[in-house]
Design a protein around this nucleic acid. Structure first.
Lengths: 227, 227
DNA sequence: CGTCGGCTTGAATTATCTCAATTTAAGTGG
DNA sequence: CCACTTAAATTGAGATAATTCAAGCCGACG
């Protein structure tokens, strides 16, 4: 049905970016928020918890996941420094948030956010735009999971990570999450992620100084596949 | 990694439902909207078009899809009677909307919507809730695409359709879309959809009076797999 | 009645997974 | 700083779910 030479389009991993469009109004909330630190693997909030806070990552990384009853896990996004998560109009969180790394976040109470949104039209607009940006990312993620090969998925993921850091070709990009996290984000097994990583390295498409970083060496052949 | 006996959790196909939570304020817009009719397969709007209208399905069904450059397609949702689509704060549509069937929609201008949202807090809230509901559905779709087997995907899809119609076990549910559409929604091939359909029939899990409808006969074994 | 598009089934292929073993990296405590 | 322990990552070999390619079926419709 499709060749594997054509590799995916640029996409961000997920979680609303604050790099491209800085949410000045919402960012102001951090002054009233509290800093929290989480050790690797710790749960920040669980699916079903009352959504009483909104978070922004200061350093580290957070994975946003949904679990099936039998333990299968799908990571629906990662939140990296500067990005928000847990922002929802729903009464409870629809996913679990866990620290990938040693992570520091700012937590702001939801009532404060809603108060601000009610008072400041600009803040309200930002709120909206963040949700909208999230929806666009989720849609790209759907395309990736439904219609891309393992190789394309990994390439798309790496390109998305590089883009988020504003990295140019040749720049070193950090890979804060482990292989299992990548697998659960891409809908693959950890072994397949390893194998495709090895392939991309051998093909000279990427280089990897160590397990937790990479460099994009050759974007040719990774041509944008999106419409 | 997982058994196939445990089949997925309930999920709606996608597109914001107006059945459970009727958006009274937004629905009022229909009085000022125009009715449009589309023949099967016709494009209502394309990805990238300026998002100048918001639509609501009156009858028929609409598929919301994203295309890759090589023609691969991922359907990110279906809009059925009563449901909205094309509702976005972004300047352009992020997906293409095509009529599945002979379909009638109401089209309302975006400026009207935004005017209403600016004036009526209730309408604004509805707007928000519709986006939020859409995000929840997309998240379930991500789990389905990333972590469920073909059999589970199809079962989840059928249960979602039945739920949307408010059908009880034993009620006949319409299948407005073709097999290829189902395949592109589930991230499968048309052949796999057919085979799994056949399996579910033979297993007595469902019955199918004809190709375009089905009946859920046995929900046991389709135990909710979600966390 | 014949054609045509969509659906279904079959047989063979393959991308990805599973299970198992090995290597590498990261601690930890002496 | 080094031995020891442990977890994570990688690689291999075999199994399998899903795909591809191909053929047949069936209902819709002129």
């Amino acid at each position: 049905m499709h060749t594997h030479s054509a590799i995916a389009a640029h996409e961000s991993g997920s979680a609303v970016s604050a790099t491209a469009m800085r949410p000045r109004e919402l960012a102001a909330l951090e002054k009233y928020g509290s800093r929290l630190r989480f050790a690797p693997g710790k749960t920040i909030f669980a699916e079903g918890d009352r959504a009483s806070s909104v978070y922004r990552v200061l350093c580290g990384a957070v994975r946003l996941c949904k679990y099936l009853a039998d333990g299968r896990r799908q990571i629906i996004g990662f939140a990296q420094p500067g990005e928000f998560f847990g922002l929802t109009p729903a009464p409870s969180y629809s996913f679990t948030a866990e620290a990938v790394n040693d992570t520091v976040v700012v937590s702001s109470s939801r009532s404060q956010i809603e108060g601000l949104a009610g008072v400041s039209p600009a803040a309200h607009r930002e709120f909206f735009d963040l949700m909208s940006a999230q929806m666009l990312k989720d849609q790209l993620h759907l395309v990736m999971l439904g219609r891309q090969s393992a190789r394309e998925k990994l390439a798309t993921f790496l390109i998305g990570l590089a883009d988020r850091c504003g990295a140019e070709d040749g720049d070193i990009v950090e890979l804060p999450m482990g292989r299992q996290d990548i697998a659960d984000y891409l809908g693959l097994t950890i072994e397949t992620v390893c194998r495709e990583m090895t392939y991309l390295k051998r093909a000279g498409t990427i280089a990897a100084p160590d397990q937790h970083s990479f460099v994009i060496r050759d974007v040719r052949g990774l041509g944008a596949a999106l419409h």
